[in-house]
Design a protein around this nucleic acid. Sequence first.
DNA 1: GCCGCCGTTGGCACTCAGTGTCAATGCGAG
DNA 2: CTCGCATTGACACTGAGTGCCAACGGCGGC
Lengths: 205, 205
Amino acid sequence: MAQRKRQLVAGELTEAALRLLARKGFDAVTIDEIVATAGVSRRTFFRYFASKEDVVVQFLAEMGDGIRAELAGRPAAESPAEALRHAVRVPLDACADHSDRALGVVQLILRTPALRARFLERQAEWRDGLTAELASRLGLDAETDLYPRLAAGMAVSTFDTVLHRWSESGGEISPAALIEQAFTLLAPSLDAPVRQTAHDAESGR
Amino acid sequence: MAQRKRQLVAGELTEAALRLLARKGFDAVTIDEIVATAGVSRRTFFRYFASKEDVVVQFLAEMGDGIRAELAGRPAAESPAEALRHAVRVPLDACADHSDRALGVVQLILRTPALRARFLERQAEWRDGLTAELASRLGLDAETDLYPRLAAGMAVSTFDTVLHRWSESGGEISPAALIEQAFTLLAPSLDAPVRQTAHDAESGR
DNA sequence: GCCGCCGTTGGCACTCAGTGTCAATGCGAG
DNA sequence: CTCGCATTGACACTGAGTGCCAACGGCGGC
């Protein structure tokens, strides 16, 4: 009831914001313009979004949840490279599937410094989530073992790289093949049989 | 002459800022306080630094140049993993060598969201620089080959991870050993004999 | 020594993001 | 009908960042 209205207002706000921002550029649009076209007050905007950037970037949070959930749902027997590959596919396939909506937003984010910065923050959160997930999956300690965080970093880095390519190609090249290439490249390290363990670290090497 | 004075004022400003920020936290310090203790006007502050964050983070730019320069200076015969390892060592050793100064700044950056965001932006710049350097080093095309950007991402990710560990240990653990561990982990992918080339990509795989 | 040139500075006014506060509104439960 | 409860709008305020202009201060030419 009230929950649905919140959803509605938030959608109205993002839609108005996205249209304006895409047309005039991020810096040239004030929040007063956004709320004017959305028909709510300035104060209400900040009840829904913490900042001007958030109205563009907020949806990335659920993307992060999606990635981590996918990783958590992969079978335990699967190799890290394989599991991470599937996890990274989730948001990228989502982009490719809704390229008419997503492409404009992604290009806006990647070409606007303030938005790209927020995007990088989100990626760092994703990486932390994947790090924890990988650690629990492999029975490693995320605080002492380098592997989980480096592996998560590689996955997020792959995501970022593929997204850039996809964006710059105007949505022409499909992410799937690039992901495949990236992970065959990374697999030798991701799936190396010998990994640093907490015990090794304590014993000094 | 005038150049030296600029250097002097900038130093005065950063010193005053760092002292205040470390004591009271980033958000609790206003630019008016900083310029008051530094003895210059508010307007002058923004002639030297583009933002409040920049006064803390600006030195990272030259760190990026240092990393890239080190990579460019490594012998061409050296393997990518080896060359990148040396490049990443540069800023980390600099931190460890001046840990009395650097540790406080690093901890401030890592625990302040606004500063960490700027830090991530810098890392992205570093990665782009390393990507270009690697591409030219290996005769690859940074636009079509995934390898240079992924490899640069691994290097920057290693830097970030090691810096975190170093910061959280209070400067106790030396970065050198961690870097070694990280690169032996990454070497199988970094130095894999077969890499994607521009020609392979054009022919579809 | 005097004068104009140029770079740096300070002060001022302004826009805009973001926050706290409070009164008004709307709505369902009792 | 009325009492909460949540949402909203309006107002005021702080603080970051920018544009503009006048005032300094060194420096070479005259």
